[in-house]
Design a protein around this nucleic acid. Structure first.
Length: 278
DNA sequence: AAAAAGTACAACCGCAATGAA
DNA sequence: ATTCATTGCGGTTGTACTTTT
């Protein structure tokens, strides 16, 4: 007795979105804001299911999305966070606000996984290298530790979407350029906003909450969070993790060998329930 | 130049979580 | 407490594009 599908299978368009559809969707969200996806297809006349509309918006049309190549910094963050959080792409994406979880997932599957395989193979024969089980164990410990920090920290409401004006302008601009160069065909190759020149404030990311362990040299105190220092995102005394400390956290050592290097744990505003502790 | 193989990524699918009735 | 519509997430697929043969 399964649930009814989210959308009727008949009469629903699938496949790549056309620029026209993008404009309709963006215009609608510009007026009504994101959400209530169920009503979007009926109100806009789009022959798409609500799920498809939401996905198109969150992964592609939403303002503030950075496209194009990942920087070395982003790459290292993803590697480190993946070691820490596993394949929880939404959680990882919350640390890279300009990237979507889908983007990060794709990048991981197409680039980083191979890279890590090669690197791990390189380290495997090293006599002093850590075993896979040991690294897994340490990752689990850190995941638990991170979850504990999260459970004790304050939640911040997810940041509201910024205005779509910039996105629409970009969309229209690119659309006009592409439509002049292509004939009117129903098979669109790529959506016009896929250019990489999208973002402006690339260095402004910050963390919602921050949890700092007392000291880094005693692993036995990991579970004792009573002496941890917690900061809310609005706390002006909060150290600037992103600019300096995180760089240290990321770059001081090989993240592949030391995913648990213990100094600072940034806490993400999880969309869902944090992982269970034990 | 053409075919085959490889790559990148947008989009879909199914399931789980959530919240309202 | 239960049901059910809606939303969010992660895994997977389809296909356009690029590179190699």
């Amino acid at each position: 007795m399964g649930r009814a599908p989210c959308c009727e299978k008949v009469g629903v368009k699938k496949g790549p979105w056309t620029p026209e559809e993008d404009i309709v969707l963006v215009s609608y969200i510009q007026q009504h804001g994101p959400g209530n996806w169920r009503s979007v297809p009926t109100n806009t006349g789009l022959m798409r299911c609500s799920k498809s509309c939401r996905l198109r918006w969150t992964n592609y049309l939403r303002p503030g999305i950075k496209r194009g190549n990942f920087s070395e910094h982003e790459e290292k963050m993803i590697i480190h966070l993946q070691a820490l959080l596993g394949n929880r792409w939404a959680a990882i994406a919350s640390y890279l606000p300009e990237r979507t979880d889908n983007d990060i997932k794709n990048y991981w599957n197409t680039h980083l996984k191979k890279k890590l395989l090669i690197t791990n193979h390189r380290h495997h024969s090293h006599p002093n290298g850590k075993g896979q089980w040991e690294r897994t164990l340490q990752t689990d410990i850190h995941t638990a530790k991170q979850a504990l920090c999260h459970a004790l920290s304050l939640h911040s409401s997810p940041s509201p979407y910024a205005s779509s004006t910039q996105n629409i302008a970009r969309l229209l601009q690119n659309w006009t350029t592409t439509t002049t160069t292509t004939t009117t065909t129903t098979t669109t190759t790529k959506s016009p906003v896929s250019n990489s020149n999208s973002n402006s404030n690339s260095s402004s990311s910050s963390f919602a909450n921050l949890c700092i362990p007392p000291t880094s040299n005693n692993s036995s105190s990991d579970a004792d969070t009573s002496s941890y220092t917690f900061f809310h995102q609005d706390d002006e005394t909060k150290p600037n993790l992103h600019d300096s400390l995180l760089d240290k956290w990321l770059f001081d050592d090989d993240p592949l060998l030391n995913p648990t290097q213990d100094l600072f744990i940034p806490i993400s505003p999880f969309h869902q329930t944090p992982p269970h502790l034990f």
